[in-house]
């Protein structure tokens, strides 16, 4: 028998022996425990050292991963904040709209009997820097016609101009061409209120006798003369009384009650 063949047989015996041994040791054998403990003891120092080193590496990589996760989380939170801010802005808008509508509703209830009010939404403004006119989402179809008073719960806004089927133009009080027959509420001194041409957003009550009892802080309301504006609509309050150039008359500078630069919902007074 050659060396090569003997070697093959030897290896075959070894392999079969290993197979049988593996089968026999499916359950731990008594003698094996001792050998196992020996290997364990031999490996223990290295394993402890390696475990510590591997732990450091894992911690370091964990810190890196944590940093990356924090970065991602931060980005996600930033996005969420932006979304929430946008949402919050919409909610604030709804809340304010709700407040305005409640106020308008209250005013409408209070004015019931005196005026026939039609609620309208401002859908456009004049492109002019002075904001002299608005466009409402109501028109002839809703009973709106030219020269009707337009008000808010705070006070008079202006009057309707051109009226379409479903839209209506509103000429604001600040437009010098819009004149309102008015009077000082307390003293009943009559006058004409019109827009100032200085772009201040204020009004002036002209042609007041120089000795008329007109004082700052007094309220000015519509008098109802002229037919366009019903009587008793609040217009504004006097902030200053100044003499006119001829010296015989004086005029009152008026701050309108309604904020004419921030109108979103208004009422059209149909009668």
């Amino acid at each position: 028998m050659g060396v090569h063949r003997r070697r093959i047989i030897w290896w075959l015996v070894v392999l079969v022996g290993l197979l049988l041994l593996a089968r026999a040791t499916a359950a731990p054998l008594p003698g094996v425990g001792f050998l196992q403990r020996l290997v364990y003891e031999a490996m223990a120092p290295l394993q402890r050292g390696t475990a510590v080193a591997a732990g450091w590496i894992a911690d370091a990589s964990g810190a890196f991963t944590a940093y990356r996760e924090l970065q991602q989380e931060n980005e996600a939170l930033q996005t969420q904040i932006r979304e929430l801010l946008a949402e919050n802005s919409v909610m604030t808008e709804y809340r304010l709209e709700n407040l305005r509508l409640r106020q308008m509703l209250g005013f409408k209830e209070a004015a019931k009997g005196n005026y026939d009010l039609l609620a309208a939404k401002v859908v456009a403004r004049s492109p002019s820097a002075w904001n002299l006119s608005l466009v409402l989402d109501r028109g002839k179809a809703d009973g709106v016609s030219p020269d009707q008073a337009v008000i808010t719960a705070e006070g008079l806004v202006g009057r309707t101009g051109t009226v379409g089927e479903n839209t209506a133009e509103v000429r604001l009080l600040t437009d010098p061409e819009v004149a309102v027959a008015a009077m000082v509420q307390v003293s009943r001194v009559p006058g004409v209120v019109q827009g100032r041409q200085d772009g201040s957003g204020r009004l002036e009550m002209i042609h007041l006798p120089h000795d008329a009892p007109v004082r700052p802080q007094q309220t000015v309301v519509s008098s109802g003369w002229g037919g366009v504006f019903p009587p008793g609509l609040r217009i504004g309050y006097i902030i200053e009384v100044v003499p006119e150039p001829n010296g015989l008359m004086e005029k009152a500078i008026i701050q309108p009650f309604a904020d004419l630069n921030r109108l979103e919902e208004v009422f059209v007074v149909r009668r």
Partner: peptide, 9 residues
């Protein structure tokens, strides 16, 4: 031996 079972596998 380290694994303790199926020795030879």
């Amino acid at each position: 031996i380290y694994l303790g079972r199926y020795i030879g596998l």
